[in-house]
């Protein structure tokens, strides 16, 4: 049933590529979108330290406020993928709905890649030291280092999380990430990107510092028809101590012949 729904939306999208395509990944799209956020509760517990008043102080623990399977321009909408990559995404959604999702890097505990990592429904600790903003992600011990006021090296060797340089524009931290390999997906659903993907983030504190807003712009001349943007919100969670998350411990879903099999 779900596979049929996907196929029919895909057909519409192909006949009118500029229309916004909705891709439901289960019979109940609302359930699919809200299920994984069970761990993400509302505001910080009473009595935990308030966020710093300094608009450029991001230091502390943040937790995404809403989780999405697809990282498109709107919730529930895939990225503006070229037709051939849209078909690949549909194939992946069907495989997932059959209970045999296709493997990507994170399946065997390699880093999630970008922008997918920023969608993780687990907390992030931000640490700010001279010349560097560091994101320590609970999920699978991913680390992002944002080098302040530096340039990308020429001949970047592709890596899972790429190379990130950042600078302040007013109180917004503008982060530019390049040098990503093509072994990861854009999102949890399996939207493809190439090694030419370029991610620009504009990160700032909003709502009296109780929230961190990240506006991400994704460019990929290989898989996308055009660049697109979306915003994510992370809540200030000084009450949270990120846990040890060792993906390798419980790696029972290691792929076999490129297909993940629940064991």
């Amino acid at each position: 049933m779900a596979a049929l729904a996907v196929a029919s939306t895909a057909a519409q999208a192909q006949s009118n590529p500029r229309s916004i395509q909705r891709l439901h990944n289960s019979d109940d799209p609302l359930l699919a979108l809200t299920g994984p956020i069970a761990r993400v509760s509302g505001d910080a517990a009473a009595g935990s330290p308030p966020p710093s008043k300094d608009p450029r102080d991001f230091e502390g623990v943040w937790w995404i406020s809403r989780y999405e399977y697809l990282l498109g321009p709107e919730p529930g909408v895939p990225p503006p993928l070229k037709d051939e990559y849209m078909r690949i995404l549909e194939r992946r959604v069907r495989a997932k709905n059959r209970g045999t999702p296709e493997a990507d890097a994170s399946t065997d505990c390699r880093p999630h890649g970008m922008p997918r990592l920023m969608e993780s429904p687990y907390p992030i600790r931000i640490v700010q030291t001279p010349g560097q903003v560091t994101l320590l992600h609970e999920v699978a011990h991913n680390i992002r280092r944002l080098y302040i006021d530096q340039k990308h090296p020429t001949n970047l060797k592709p890596s899972y999380l790429g190379h990130s340089v950042a600078h302040w524009e007013g109180d917004t931290l503008v982060v530019d990430t390049k040098g990503l390999n093509d072994k990861t997906f854009i999102d949890d659903e399996g939207s493809s990107h190439s090694a030419q993907i370029h991610v620009v983030e504009r990160i700032r504190k909003i709502n009296n510092g109780k929230e961190l807003e990240d506006q991400l712009t994704i460019t990929d001349p290989v898989t996308l028809t055009a660049p697109y943007s979306f915003k994510r919100i992370y809540k200030w969670r000084s009450d949270v101590k990120p846990a040890e998350y060792i993906c390798e411990e419980n790696n029972r879903n290691a792929p076999e012949n490129g297909v993940t099999v629940a064991k």
């Binding site: 999380l161 390798e248 790696n251 290691a254």
Partner: peptide, 13 residues
């Protein structure tokens, strides 16, 4: 960036 799964090629327990 060091990725053990790439270095070792097997993370299955």
């Amino acid at each position: 960036e060091d990725v053990c799964a790439e270095r070792i090629g097997n993370t299955a327990p």
